[in-house]
């Protein structure tokens, strides 16, 4: 039976999907701006954030309305509370792309410290994780969500590597590099934070599908071994 609430939830889902695409684009643009030292593109990311903020408010209001009007239970309740979390996670990711773009603006005046290899890699990973986490939400796919959570470890390693390189190979050796190294260091941390938010989305998806709280229990999560035929 198609219920009125199903239609409303479909709208929420589509809105979040749209927001997810906008956020992915913001990640993409901020990193393009970095690579090309493109101040205009960086400014565009900053100004575009207003639209995402607006969307955040609208989706949140919509979900509050649905909670009040339909008083949903069980799977419906878990869907809507999850959607509410995902909405704010996406908004925070967008804020991080603003931070990154501000660093890009700081850097655009000076020559690049070094050729960028690992930072774009981390950015691509962040974008991929956001896409996969949103995709797992849309498809109610807990396996896909689990993959996102488990892959977060690699992004942490990548960040640590980049930051150590910036500190020990540049800042420690030559103090004059600090003004160019610090913005890179900060935006590296921001990129890794994006991965964390994608992980949080994936954790919410697992709650939505299985009603299991996995956040703060990441140590318990393991990749499922190839299961025996049932």
């Amino acid at each position: 039976m198609e219920r009125h609430l199903d239609e409303e939830m479909e709208i929420v889902k589509n809105d979040l999907l749209k927001m997810g695409i906008m956020v992915e684009e913001a990640i993409q643009n901020s990193i393009e701006a970095l690579k090309k030292q493109d101040a205009r593109l960086a400014s565009k990311v900053i100004s575009d954030d207003e639209r995402i903020d607006e969307m955040d408010n609208q989706i949140e209001e919509k979900i509050i309305d649905l909670l009040a009007l339909f008083q949903p239970f069980a799977g419906d309740l878990r869907f809507l509370t999850t959607a509410m979390h995902i909405n704010s996670e996406l908004e925070r990711i967008a804020d991080l792309t603003v931070n990154i773009s501000q660093r890009v603006l700081e850097l655009s005046e000076q020559p690049m410290l070094k050729p960028l290899i690992d930072i774009p890699k981390l950015a691509a990973r962040a974008k991929h994780m956001v896409r996969e986490s949103i995709d797992s939400f849309i498809k109610h796919d807990e396996k896909q969500a689990l993959d996102v959570i488990l892959s977060d470890k690699e992004s942490n390693q990548l960040r640590t590597m980049v930051i150590q390189e910036l500190i020990y190979d540049y800042m420690v050796k030559d103090a004059s590099t600090v003004t160019r190294a610090v913005p890179l260091l900060l935006l590296t941390r921001d990129l890794e934070r994006i991965c964390d938010h994608a992980t949080a989305i994936a954790e919410d998806v697992i709650y939505m599908v299985q009603a299991k709280m996995v956040k703060h229990h990441r140590a318990d999560l393991k990749k499922p071994k190839s299961q025996k035929a049932e």
Partner: peptide
């Protein structure tokens, strides 16, 4: 029962599917 019922049929009832 109202956040995570064990049976599909309970879920269908509490979410108003029948």
């Amino acid at each position: 029962i109202f956040t995570n019922p064990s049976r599909k049929i309970t879920e269908d009832y509490v979410t108003g599917r029948f």
